[in-house]
């Protein structure tokens, strides 16, 4: 449904996207992950036909974005990073305008705006002025705008930013309800969002696609071994790192005399750590095995900065 082939985009001398290729199947909800400035928005803008790519090809809903942008635009709902609203207009006027822009007139226009407002939880808000809405409601109007023509493809740039927890759940349920019938690509830097919504994710950093796959596959890309959390009084990092089982030691902080470390190891290092502590007369408060979280996988994939 969405296909990017060797997409490249440069802004002057700066390379924003470098040879990015991916495919998204019909009905999939795919998370688009990456730190700020990684190229998520640029990629989405290219897919919507707003920006031309410097190189490469993109096909959305069976049409080439560069050759038939109109056909693509008809089939895509797009929510930019900040909802594109006219502060002077009311919710009803704004959505009516969008409906007309999308070719709905008369009764169809009325029916479309009514049903989309119900869908995103805006019923009864027709007369509210957009400029007076809170961030969460602005986001809903933005989403309503993207969903209005019931497009087969939805491109959502950080759809849940600025929402309170209750709204978050509402919007997530809405996105989930689109699975199967709609193809959704949503960008975010909140990983729990991807865990909640997307069976599959693309990870992009510095303009390059560095990983893609199911969440389990991404987790498996975490550093070599497993993570262990150690809280000790009387041992320092180098001594822990000197253990043959330990590949990596990261100090995480201190609480009085207690110091916290994170160890990465392929073989369970806990007996060795306990042994070392006993020999050195150190005290141990925590010694536990931590399953790699998506956060850790993500950080190790995109690299630390």
């Amino acid at each position: 449904m969405i296909e990017a082939i060797a997409l490249t985009k440069s802004y002057g001398p700066r390379l924003a996207l470098n040879n990015v290729s991916f495919t998204i199947e019909r009905g999939e909800i795919v998370g688009f992950l990456g730190p700020n400035g990684a190229g998520k928005t640029t990629t989405m803008r290219i897919l919507t036909g707003f920006l031309p790519a410097t190189g490469g090809d993109a096909r959305v809903a069976g049409f080439d974005v560069f050759e038939s942008p109109m056909e693509v635009k008809r089939r895509v709902g797009y929510l930019p990073e900040s909802p594109p609203l006219y502060p002077e207009l009311s919710v009803g006027d704004y959505l009516g305008f969008i409906a007309e822009l999308r070719g709905f007139t008369g009764r169809a226009r009325h029916q479309r705006t009514g049903s989309v407002m119900e869908r995103v939880g805006l019923s009864g808000w027709e007369r509210r002025i957009l400029g007076s809405l809170s961030k969460g409601y602005r986001q809903r109007v933005g989403l309503a705008q993207a969903l209005l023509h019931d497009p087969p493809v939805l491109i959502l740039d950080e759809p849940t930013s600025g929402l309170d927890p209750a709204q978050l759940v509402g919007i997530r349920d809405l996105v989930k309800s689109l699975a199967g019938t709609h193809t959704v690509i949503l960008s975010t830097h909140i990983l729990s969002e991807v865990e909640a919504l997307c069976p599959r994710a693309l990870v992009i950093t510095k303009g390059q696609l560095v990983a893609q796959g199911s969440l389990d596959e991404l987790r498996a890309m975490a550093p070599r071994g497993d993570w262990y959390l150690v809280e000790v009084d009387g041992l320092d990092g180098p001594r822990l790192g000197a253990l043959p089982q330990v590949d990596l030691v990261e100090p995480l902080g201190a609480d009085g005399a207690w110091r916290t470390f994170r160890l990465n190891a392929r073989v369970d290092p806990r007996p060795a750590v306990a042994e070392l502590a006993r020999e050195a007369g150190a005290r141990v408060r925590t010694l536990e095995h931590r399953l790699p979280t998506l956060e850790e996988a993500f950080v190790s994939i995109v690299g630390r900065e």
Binding site: G49, P80, E81, L85, I98
Partner: peptide, 14 residues
């Protein structure tokens, strides 16, 4: 400035 140009330019209008 409002980002609505992006809205217009991603809608099916020339």
């Amino acid at each position: 400035r409002l980002g609505t140009l992006e809205l217009l330019m991603t809608a099916p209008v020339s």
